[in-house]
Amino acid sequence: MVNFNSVSHAFLLNRYRVLPLLLSTAVSSVAAPVYALQQSELEVYPPNWWAGMQNPEVELMIYGEGVADDTVSIDKGKAIINRVKALDSENYLFVTLDTSGARAQELTLTLTDNDGSYRRLHYSLEKRKEGSASRKGFGPEDAIYLIAPDRFANGNSANDNVDGYQDKADRQLKGSRHGGDIQGIVDNLDYIKSMGFTQIWTMPMLENAMDKYSYHGYSTTDYYTIDPRFGSNDAFLELSEHAKSEGVGVIMDMVLNHIGSNHKWLEDTPSKDWINNEGKFVGTTHKRESLHDPHAIESDIKGFSDGWFVPTMPDLNQRNPHLANYLVQNAIWW
């Protein structure tokens, strides 16, 4: 099992560059190559994957300064690079790995720039948990209890306010956070079970690093991190384990339609078509019937499907295959 608290999306890697350096002494002057070490930061999503998946391909989104024109090779481990694709931003590179027949292992990928400098990325293929492919989801036989975590129960007041997050707990201010968290749900599993519920559906608990109105969870700013005001990735796993021991399942609310406006994709967008309406706010028409009306015109369909809910929720364009892969792989990863 992955220790999620130790998982970092940012990998500090070494970029090496050969620099000529003239060393002068009283005896002689000698030209000698010196390897100058530069620290560089890359991020990779998903942060890890698994060997033995039914679909052997996984597409890595690699983010880092000037990475788009790098060539990629595997220096350690068994996997094949099927495709490498750069989009519009010079800071994203999409690398598709084929893990057919691969065992659990640590891969080492080398990204080499045009000037010969390179960065190494260490990527883990984990061993799948036994029986993971036969997990059962929820069905019509389940009674589902919907929870707004921030409004449910505060099990750990120490995480009500977290440094670096602007939206603070304030029960007197409309739209502010109240302090509910994952521990509050764990503490009340007996209560939920006693009412006859067999599944818990929580509103989203991924990071919502918004300036205000973040309590609902629908303005995702990091798809791979539980918001620290709810707890941690490990705390979410513990909730799942505790609930399972009580015979209760946990349904994760996946927000695939939009992100929060403080997501890094607004500062550096992978491609021009990553966000609908060229990244500019155009409100949705809310005409849901346009999707199933046989006489609907294209502008009505697009006005509903491509419009944003509000200016702080940029609408994602899932027609982009790399974005679609990102979202599907994120759901599988969780």
Rank of each mutant, 00 (worst) to 15 (best):
Y63H: 10
F281N: 09
A102M: 12
N5T: 07
A68H: 06
T198L: 06
K264I: 03
Q199L: 00
K272R: 13
N317A: 10
P20K: 15
N208T: 14
G155H: 01
V7H: 05
A148D: 02
N161G: 07
M205N: 00
D187T: 03
L37F: 10
Q54K: 10
Q54N: 06
L23I: 15
L125H: 09
A169P: 06
N82R: 13
K136E: 10
A51I: 09
H242W: 02
G66V: 02
K280N: 10
I144W: 00
D222E: 02
P56Q: 09
V44H: 04
R120A: 07
S40D: 11
R128M: 13
R151G: 04
D98G: 01
N55E: 10
G247Y: 06
H292L: 12
D160H: 12
I259G: 03
D273R: 04
K272A: 13
R17K: 15
V58H: 00
E130V: 14
Y215L: 09
A243V: 03
Q105T: 14
V250G: 00
H9E: 12
M254R: 00
Y63F: 14
Y165G: 09
S132D: 11
S40M: 00
A133L: 11
M61T: 08
M210A: 08
N159D: 07
N114V: 05
L42P: 10
H122W: 04
L87A: 02
S89K: 07
P140E: 13
L206H: 06
F152G: 05
N233S: 01
Y45E: 06
D211Q: 09
S124C: 02
P47E: 05
Y223L: 04
F197N: 05
R103V: 15
L239C: 02
R171S: 15
E57L: 06
T108Y: 08
I192R: 03
H216P: 07
K244H: 05
Y213A: 11
G52E: 12
T198V: 06
S176G: 00
S299F: 07
K264P: 03
Y92W: 05
P20E: 14
D113G: 04
Q172Y: 10
L121H: 09
K287D: 15
N320V: 14
F197V: 07
S132F: 12
L237P: 00
W49H: 03
